[in-house]
Computed example of a mutant assay.
Amino acid sequence: MEELLEDVVNALVSIVEACGAAVIIIGAVWAFARFVWVGLRRRDTSAFVPVRLTLGRFLALGLEFQLASDVLRTAVAPSFRELGQLAAVAAIRTALNYFLGKEIAEERRQVAEETKGARTGSGSTSAHGSSDPA
């Protein structure tokens, strides 16, 4: 019975790892396509921020799938060595995810400030009537 459980878990690990890899690959391809598209249309570096944010989200999600596969791998009678490896891998991936999340949040904040500043700048001119000759 334990062998059957181990076989099922190993199959699930492979599926979850493949899902994580697929998410990362899809995100990288999407980001590269958007990078090329935006790069051909605009040379402004701020145009690439949304591309980076989306790629970051794909990477974070892919890392979560990879962590899930590591957890599954140790589900059936783990040794202390396997648990130690899981703890190390989980710590590294969690740290990566944390810093990636911080970077995404910071860039979102910057985009929001730039968008708000652009709206305020164009809206305040017409609101005060500076373009009006009277």
Score class of each variant (00 low, 15 high):
Met1His: 14
Glu2Met: 12
Glu2Arg: 13
Glu3Gly: 09
Glu3His: 08
Leu4Asn: 03
Leu4Met: 09
Glu6Val: 05
Glu6Arg: 11
Asp7Leu: 09
Asp7Cys: 07
Val9Asp: 12
Val9Cys: 11
Val9Lys: 14
Ala11Asp: 13
Val13Pro: 06
Ile15Tyr: 10
Val16Glu: 00
Val16Gln: 00
Ala18Gln: 06
Cys19Met: 14
Ile24Glu: 05
Ile25Met: 07
Ile25Cys: 06
Ile26Glu: 13
Gly27Met: 04
Ala28Tyr: 02
Ala28Pro: 11
Phe32Lys: 09
Phe32Gly: 06
Phe32Arg: 12
Ala33Asp: 06
Arg34Lys: 15
Phe35Pro: 10
Phe35Ile: 14
Phe35Glu: 14
Val36Pro: 12
Val36Tyr: 07
Trp37Ile: 11
Gly39Ser: 04
Gly39Phe: 08
Arg42Lys: 13
Asp44His: 08
Ala47His: 12
Ala47Trp: 08
Val51Ser: 01
Thr54Val: 01
Leu55His: 09
Gly56Ala: 05
Arg57Cys: 03
Phe58Gln: 02
Ala60Leu: 08
Ala60Asn: 10
Leu61Arg: 10
Leu61Pro: 05
Gly62Leu: 01
Leu63Glu: 02
Leu63Cys: 01
Gln66Phe: 08
Ala68Lys: 06
Ala68Met: 09
Asp70Arg: 11
Asp70Cys: 00
Asp70Thr: 07
Val71Cys: 01
Leu72Asp: 03
Leu72Pro: 05
Arg73Cys: 00
Arg73Thr: 01
Val76His: 00
Val76Lys: 01
Val76Asp: 01
Pro78Ile: 02
Pro78Gln: 02
Phe80Arg: 09
Arg81Asn: 08
Gly84Ile: 01
Ala87Thr: 04
Ala88Gly: 04
Ala88Glu: 10
Val89Arg: 09
Val89Asn: 06
Val89Phe: 03
Ala90Cys: 05
Ala90Ser: 11
Ala90Lys: 01
Ala91Ile: 04
Ile92Ala: 02
Ile92Val: 06
Ile92Tyr: 10
Arg93His: 07
Ala95Thr: 10
Ala95Phe: 11
Ala95His: 07
Leu96Lys: 05
Asn97Tyr: 03
Asn97Leu: 10
Tyr98Val: 06
Phe99Trp: 13
Leu100Lys: 03
Leu100Ile: 05
Lys102Pro: 02
Lys102Val: 08
Glu103Lys: 09
Glu103Asp: 10
Ile104Arg: 12
Ile104Gly: 09
Ala105Gln: 08
Ala105Gly: 05
Glu106Cys: 03
Glu107Ser: 14
Glu107Tyr: 08
Arg109Glu: 13
Arg109Thr: 10
Gln110Ile: 14
Gln110Tyr: 14
Val111Trp: 01
Ala112Ser: 14
Ala112Cys: 11
Thr115Ser: 13
Lys116Asn: 12
Lys116Tyr: 05
Gly117Ser: 14
Gly117Thr: 13
Ala118Val: 11
Thr120Gln: 15
Thr120Ile: 14
Gly121Asn: 11
Ser122Tyr: 01
Ser122Gln: 02
Ser124Val: 02
Ser124Thr: 04
Ser126Ala: 05
Ser126Asn: 09
Ser130Gly: 04
Ser131Arg: 13
Asp132Thr: 08
Asp132Ser: 09
Pro133Asp: 00
Pro133Asn: 00
Ala134Leu: 15
